[in-house]
Write a protein that binds this DNA or RNA. Sequence first.
RNA 1: GGGCUCGUAGCUCAGUCAGGCAGAGCGGUGGGCUCUUAACCCAUUCGCCAAGGGUUCAAAUCCCUUCGGGCCCGCCA
Length: 498
Amino acid sequence: MDETKHWADVIADNVAATGEKHIIATGITPSGNIHIGNLREVMTADGAHRALHNAGADAELIYIGDTFDPLRKVYPFLPDDYAEHVGKPLHAIPCPCGNCANYAEHYLMPFLKSLEELDIKPTVYRAHELYENGDFVPATIKALQNRDKIAAILETVSKRELPANWSPFNVLCESCGRITATEVAGFDDRRKTVDYTCDCGYAGTVPVKGNGKLTWRVDWASRWGILGVTIEPFGKDHATRGGSYDTGTRISREIYGREPPYPIIYEWIHLKGKGAMSSSTGVTVTITDMLQVMPPEVLRYLILKTKPEKHIDFDPSRIVELIDEYDRATGRARELSQTKRSLRSDIPFTHIVTALQIASDSDSFREVLRRSGYGALDLESVKMRVKNATNWLALYAPESVKFEVQETMPHDVEKLTPGQRTGLLQIASGISDDITASDLHDLVYGASEAAGISGSKMFQAIYIAILGKKSGPRAGYFMASLDRAFLLNRLNEAGRAR
RNA sequence: GGGCUCGUAGCUCAGUCAGGCAGAGCGGUGGGCUCUUAACCCAUUCGCCAAGGGUUCAAAUCCCUUCGGGCCCGCCA
């Protein structure tokens, strides 16, 4: 296959010409579990970041946690008493579990830890700290001075009407702690203060620094200048005509005198089988969840192999295929997916899944691997894959690939035909102490002939007797891995049962 | 209503920007092994490139129209 240029390299080509240092910005609001859909933003940015580095450009990846955003509502996963916190900034709300510094950190920390595993190393900013440091003060004053101009841009471009009292700045009320309930009454650009009133009845004057936040569309545009952002991926919701990128572009140019960053618009990740991924329905697959069932390189690969503008249908029941695909892949997507600790596994994941279900403990697992030709491997190197496979079997595996050796005789044995019973007895009588797996496999065919039934029926009888279902792993190897006394007893009993 | 995006093999998708023999992986099938039963290896099959029209020596690719899927336009990525 012709190696076509990877999308990340195309982006690098497109922007590298300017020769300046590139700052690739990402940002997510930590209002709930950060799921793999959110990850696409950071992963996409990291892809561009690595491609730029590979092209010899100077580039920095940054991540802004929107910790100063207000809690919008009491989400389904929150206790009812969070109603009192609605409207407060996320960093000023107590953590749901009680162990984290605040609400925002509760969701941010596992996410940042996942990024580490994925070998993504952004410079991390927290929005409330940027505001408290005063980084936004000049941009805020400018926005307040240009209030009418900005309002006109928003109304023209997004075709919506702003209330008469609209302000680009939302003040944090000193009394009730909410950032969504205040109204700006005036400001002093010399002393850098704003006057405000609040729904709660409070009114006051506070310094701009640390006491409020620009509204989203203005915040975004001013951020570009403050942090020097030159490239930014964002979801297609922001890319719609009249959306925040359109207004941001004009605000950036006309108010802040700066070109907007190079946009990378990405599509959503859809979740197959478990319904649409969305916080409101409570169906989310977090990054932490995914890292339990696949190695970080594979999670990177899942996102990097697809162009940002195409949606990804993610089917957790097919992770086995994804991992096997990654193991075989040789292209640029795989190259970009590497992490520092990447381990190449020489055992197909599919096989680990099978072996794991045959084996009852780690010794017999090693034995199963040895029998299938992987005995020389250091078990340590497949340890993580084994952990992934175990979790996957428990959480996402479809019934068709699962099996379990039945401790007691399955009921369906009663439905076996006389021919099948004869065959089972035939197999049992042919099993000697030192029989090999492949001889055992051959024995099955011999038994089906002797019993006058098809090979298919013979295999089904074996699986029904041992697993209680009609299919299973390769019969000879499978039977050889079972306890010999148990196997003989089961075959004989099933053969005699009536 | 406005906008975006996708439609290529049974499945997941490259290839479309820059027109030049329609591709990959998985699955399926056959074999390796007189004998389909989840490992592994080898070989192999698979297409009205959504439909119609146009431009061109040449169209999956560019233009127009239509149909179908998904999504966005209330700070959900």
